[in-house]
Design a protein around this nucleic acid. Structure first.
Lengths: 246, 246
DNA sequence: GAACTCCAGTCCTATAGAGGACTAGAGTTC
DNA sequence: GAACTCTAGTCCTCTATAGGACTGGAGTTC
C-alpha cells in the first residue's frame, strides 16, 4: 500500500487530529492490514508514515488501546488484540465444585435451521436466513451446570456444520478463530431471570420450573458484525455478580 | 499551607514522577484541602507549585480523573468529584410503570441496634458497635417495588437517628452529603437471587417465597471507609442488567 | 551448557513552548 | 433590555527533543 495515502490527517470538522488519526488506524486494522495478534509498525514509524509528531501518534494509539482494538506492551510493540478467550461465562456463576477450571462441554444437538425473526434481528441477517443452532451442556466436576442455546450465521460458520463434533473444543471462541477466522472482539451480556423448561431442567438435573438465571449474549467481531447469539441458563441460586459503581 | 511542601516529587522507587504526583494530589484531596464540588488550582499553577512541567502535571491529573477522584471541564477548571447521586439502584430493575422517574421512598422502620457480626465486618467496625438500621420501601407509580434494609455506622450518622422522618428525601446520598457531610464516592453491588421472606413479600404485595433479585451494596467515601451497607430486594422478573464484555 | 554481558528495537517518561477551544462574565451597541 | 463583542482564565492540542525502561536475542565467559 502506498504510504503517501496515509500522509495527511483528514482534519475532520470538529475532530482533533489524534482522533481522526485513530479513526484512520482503526480502518486499517478493520481492513485486516495487520491480523489479530500481529504487531503494528513502531510508533515512530507510524508517526512519520502519517506525517504527525510522535506525541500525536501516541495519543491516537492510546485511544485505540482504551477502546480495546490494540494492546501495547512496553519494550515489545503494539499488537492487534486477540479475540475474547471464551471462558467469560463463569463470571456469572459460582458452583461448589467450581474452582476456576474450564467447564467440560458436551454438544447435545446441532442443526441447520432458518433463523426465527427474533434471532435474525439480533444477528442482523434476513429473516429465514440459514443459521447453525446448537444445544450445549457445560459440566463442572462432572455435574451438568449450564445449558446453552447458540445461533451462528451459517455464511461464517459453514465449515462447522458438518464436521466431527468430538473434535470440538471446550472453549468455542479460540476454536472459532482457528477454524473459521471469526474473532470475537466484544460481547454484550443481558442478564435476566426465568424458569427452566422441562427439557432444560432434565439436562441440568433440576425440577421443571426451577428458577434460573438467564444470560443472553450477543458477540461481535472487529467490524461490529454480530457473529453469535447465545442464551445460557443455570441455577439461579448459583448466580452471582459484582458491579463496581463509580 | 506552605507551598514548598509540595515542591519535589518524592521519586518513589519504581514509581514514575506523574504517578507519585497523583498520589500526592490524592492525599491533598482526601485531606479535604479542596471540598467536593470545588475547583482545584489551575493546572499551570499546580505544576509550578509542585515543581514539574505542565505536561507531567496534566498526566497526573488525567490519572486521578480516570480513578474518579476529580473531574475536568474544558474551559472551566478541575473539580473534586461530587458523590454518587443515589439513583443508581434502578439500573437493575425495569418496571412497567418505570419511565425513568425517581422512586418515592417510605421509611418503614428506624432503630439503633448493635451491629451483628456480618454487618460489622462489612462496615469495618467492631462487633456490637452501634449502628442505625432502616427498613425502606420504594414505590414507582404508586406500586411498592423495592424493599431495602440499610445499616449505617452511628458515629457518622448520629444526627439522622432522631430527626423527623418526614423530612427525609427520596434520594439518600445527596441528603447524606448535605446533612452529615458523608459523600458516597463509589460502591460495590453484589447481585444474587433469593426468595422473599413473609414480611418482605407482604410489603411488596407478592406471595411469600416469591423469587427476588437481591443487591447487596457496600458504599465507600473518598477515604475508602465503608459508610453504608444496603440490601435491596425486588421481584426477580423485573430484574435486568447488561454487561459489556471486552 | 549455564550464566552473564551487550545491544538493537520498542514503548514510556519528562521537558518546553506556542497556539487553539471553551466558559463566563463585563462591557458595548442598538 | 436584548444581542453582540471583547477579554481573562481555564483546559486541550500539537510539536520537537532527550533520555529512561523494558524485551529478546546474540555473543561471551566460565
Amino acid at each position: 500500500m502506498n504510504k503517501s495515502l496515509h500522509l495527511v490527517p483528514p482534519a475532520e470538522p470538529g475532530l482533533s487530529r489524534y482522533a481522526s488519526l485513530a479513526q484512520a488506524l482503526r480502518a486499517r486494522v478493520i481492513a485486516g492490514e495487520w491480523s489479530p495478534g500481529s504487531a503494528l509498525p513502531a510508533e515512530s514509524q507510524l508517526a512519520t508514515e502519517h506525517g504527525v509528531a510522535l506525541g500525536t501518534m501516541r495519543r491516537a494509539l492510546e485511544l485505540l488501546a482504551e477502546q480495546g482494538f490494540i494492546e501495547r506492551i512496553h519494550g515489545k510493540g503494539t499488537f492487534v488484540r486477540q479475540g475474547l478467550s471464551g471462558a467469560t461465562m463463569l463470571r456469572f456463576f459460582r458452583f461448589d465444585s467450581g474452582t476456576g477450571e474450564v467447564p467440560v462441554s458436551r454438544i447435545l444437538q446441532r442443526s441447520r435451521v432458518n433463523a426465527p425473526a427474533a434471532v435474525s434481528r439480533v444477528l442482523g441477517i434476513g429473516t429465514g436466513e440459514p443459521v447453525l443452532r446448537l444445544h450445549r451442556l457445560r459440566l463442572m466436576g462432572g455435574q451438568p451446570r449450564l445449558f446453552e442455546e447458540l445461533w451462528l450465521p451459517l455464511d461464517l460458520f459453514e465449515p462447522l456444520a458438518e464436521d466431527d463434533l468430538s473434535a470440538w473444543d471446550d472453549l468455542l471462541y479460540p476454536m472459532f478463530a482457528r477454524r473459521v477466522q471469526v474473532h470475537v472482539h466484544r460481547a454484550l451480556d443481558d442478564i435476566g431471570f426465568a424458569q427452566l423448561s422441562a427439557t432444560q431442567a432434565r439436562h441440568l438435573g433440576l425440577p421443571a420450573g426451577h428458577p434460573c438465571a438467564q444470560v443472553q449474549r450477543s458477540a461481535y467481531d472487529l467490524t461490529g458484525r454480530c457473529v453469535e447469539l447465545r442464551i445460557t441458563r443455570g441455577d439461579a441460586h448459583a448466580f452471582h455478580y459484582t458491579v463496581n459503581i463509580t
